[in-house]
Computed example of a mutant assay.
Amino acid sequence: MNVRQIEAFQAVMASGSVTRAGERLSISQPAVSQLIAQFERSCGFRLFNRQGSKITPTREAEALYNEVQRMFIGVGQIARVATALRDQNWGSVSLGAFPAIARRVLPDIVWGFCEAHPDTRFRLESMRSRSLIDAVAAQHVDFGLSILPGDRPEVVSAHLHRLRGVCILPAGHHLADRQTIHAHDLANEDFVSLGPQDHSRFMIDRVFDELKVTRRSRIEAGQSETAFSFVAAKAGVAVVDPISAFNNDDTRIVVRRFEPTVEFDIWLIRPKAARSFNLVDSFVSFTLERLDLFASTLNAA
């Protein structure tokens, strides 16, 4: 019993004729008859009753045909999946990203890719850079977008972009009319700091410490978006990454350039030992193209 015999049987059952089965399989009628005879010998029972040029399937053939149909449906599904994998239209992608990137940038990118690849599935996790690097190293995600490079031997890091930090102030603040806020301008201002677990906190503090500018830091916010809420409530001003401030539509807050420059990097983190997967590679390329456009918009602001 082989696949060609099963194909001949399926074609005869589906078409009701040896001649039409041969046409479907692009082989001669005698070749079909020979394959059916071989298949009957393999099965050990008659599959068709023959009356002249007409054939009628036996009850055993009808029972067997149901199983053959299920097999062909499975083979068809395998072929469809193989085609979708070839065309990068099927499969799943998991990624982790720094919270601001995960919330403000990636949803549009992921959905844009989904629209062009409708059978793909995504899992997006928002996580701090340290947890993200660990997740990539353990291959819990396919790749990550971080503000820190990976420092583990299991990952490789590629620098993508460098962005300028911004100052956010309550609307109506006495500095709000300025287009650029200098660190000296914030002397003795109520200041909303990021939490100590946020790497950005240390970069921002270093700027003020080097300039010997004293702020009134009474509030710490675990994330940039929480800092936005405090600033909107007029609890103080803050310096944050530009991604969090992108397309700010809260009229209670104004966003201004900040000097001296506080730089925020974006890194692509991938597992060093991961096997190549066309869908993931395609999505990474798509993401990098969109990030190029996004970074150009931010740096031009």
Rank of each mutant, 00 (worst) to 15 (best):
21 A>F: 06
32 V>W: 03
80 R>C: 06
51 Q>M: 08
131 S>R: 09
69 Q>H: 05
136 V>A: 00
70 R>S: 06
79 A>Y: 01
113 F>R: 07
29 Q>T: 15
76 G>P: 00
44 G>H: 10
25 L>Y: 12
105 V>K: 02
38 Q>F: 07
122 F>V: 05
64 L>C: 05
95 L>N: 00
21 A>S: 07
49 N>I: 15
113 F>C: 10
137 A>M: 11
46 R>V: 10
90 W>R: 05
31 A>G: 08
70 R>W: 06
81 V>G: 01
101 I>N: 00
109 I>E: 02
98 F>W: 13
98 F>C: 06
31 A>M: 11
114 C>Y: 14
35 L>W: 04
17 S>C: 09
54 K>M: 10
127 M>K: 10
75 V>E: 12
111 W>Q: 15
132 L>H: 01
48 F>V: 05
78 I>Q: 08
81 V>Q: 03
34 Q>V: 13
77 Q>A: 07
19 T>D: 10
86 R>K: 13
30 P>R: 07
67 E>M: 02
124 L>H: 06
63 A>V: 09
131 S>A: 14
65 Y>G: 01
92 S>N: 12
12 V>F: 03
140 H>Y: 15
36 I>R: 03
103 R>I: 05
89 N>F: 02
16 G>V: 08
50 R>D: 07
61 A>Y: 02
98 F>H: 13
44 G>E: 12
30 P>E: 10
28 S>E: 09
50 R>M: 04
82 A>R: 04
119 D>P: 09
16 G>N: 09
55 I>H: 03
96 G>Q: 02
109 I>C: 05
41 R>F: 11
116 A>G: 11
53 S>D: 12
124 L>M: 13
23 E>A: 12
63 A>F: 07
94 S>M: 08
41 R>Y: 11
31 A>T: 14
34 Q>M: 15
36 I>D: 01
75 V>L: 13
26 S>H: 14
48 F>T: 06
87 D>L: 09
107 P>T: 12
101 I>R: 01
95 L>G: 00
138 A>K: 11
85 L>K: 03
75 V>K: 10
